[in-house]
Amino acid sequence: MKKWAKAILLTSVLTLVACTNEQDAAPTQKQTSTKQEQKATVSTNTEIPDKVQKPLKIALIMQMSIGTFSSQYIEGVKKQVEAFGGTVQVYNSDNDLAKMATNLDTAINAKVDGILIDHGRSEALKNGVEKALAANIPVVAFDNDLRLPGVTVIDQDDYSLAWKSLKTLAEDLNGTGEIAVLWVGGFAPMERRSTMIDAFYKRYPNIKEVARFGTASNNTALDTQTQVEALLKKYPKKGDLDAIFATWDEFAKGATKALEQAGRTDIKVYGIDLSNEDLQLIQKENSPWAATAATNPAEVGRIQTRFLYQKVAGEKTPDVYSLEPYLVKKDQLPSEVVTMDGLEKYIPGWGTSQAAYSPWMSKLEKEQK
């Protein structure tokens, strides 16, 4: 990480820790940058650029595809590419970085028109991405630590995601209690979320962490359920454990099911990420899942795709872009079932974004109908 990036991160963390006013603790520098970056994507060209008039072949290289968040993200990519008249080949690497690097090489050798990357690590992908750029294949990454000239990296603003959920947990506990953290290393967004967990304990010193664990597998939710069931045996009495902070919705799903089966209504779950399946769990009567901070995974896929098309068209795109996350609390939701598509009725600001949407894209979409 460059020195200036470290300085910005340190400043943001210290601001969060030092402020007693929670509004002041929000990462305002991050939000300001996001607005500036969004302005940088505005185009006044209404004519479809020559390079995107043909159907484009897009490759989506994924570190793994687990759970409904990933499925909705993939669906967002596919629908946006199809709306532009293109096709998508999805490469699932089964959480194997070496396989992910091989998949990237395969896509480059297939001479695709653009590459989308989902997660992964720079040390495994840097050479392949440089090869793609040398072949004039544009690259846009999501939740990745790549920092290469010409590559746009988007994220969900993981610092804000973690803080929104943790802050809600602290307020519900009145600043005092024992919690468990579900977390796993090896992923760029998880490392950023861990930074905010460290800041959280400095801001709320009377909240103590009694356990931290988590694994990413082909059945993360079920594995987490088993792990939380074991945790509950260590803390069988009310007051022994007050809440669980889950840094991934697959963790939150497993924890929620374990608490439900054990009848532990005294322990609440605070998560990150959201899907239709998650919403059903949160909306259940007496559900322990109290709140989650999230962006719309389908919208992540759509925005990432639009940035890629802007690159193919020769338009300027930012080096980094953060989507605005939202806090979704159980008590904000109706008794009837609500899906991601209808969430904007209950969560102010939730919904589709015009980020990375150039005027010519509307015309391109109309020509495909």
Rank of each mutant, 00 (worst) to 15 (best):
K330P: 08
A83R: 03
T46M: 09
I303M: 07
E299A: 03
D118I: 10
N296K: 09
T224P: 08
P318D: 07
T15F: 08
V13N: 04
G114L: 02
L274M: 06
K330I: 11
K345S: 12
A211F: 10
Q53S: 12
L323C: 11
H119M: 15
I267L: 06
I66T: 13
L281E: 13
D118L: 14
G150A: 05
E22L: 10
T15E: 14
I179G: 03
A188H: 15
S275H: 00
I197K: 12
K57S: 12
A230M: 07
A211W: 09
D113R: 06
Y73G: 11
D273I: 03
K234P: 07
D155C: 00
V151I: 06
I154L: 15
Q354W: 11
T106H: 00
A262C: 01
S194H: 11
G349R: 00
T352H: 13
A98Y: 07
W360T: 01
V181W: 08
L222P: 04
K233E: 14
N286W: 00
A216V: 14
V338H: 02
E82M: 05
H119R: 12
L308M: 04
N45R: 10
N276G: 12
A258G: 03
L16W: 09
G214A: 10
L161W: 06
G114C: 01
T46L: 09
A170E: 07
N136E: 14
A243G: 10
N219W: 01
F213I: 02
M100S: 02
D172V: 12
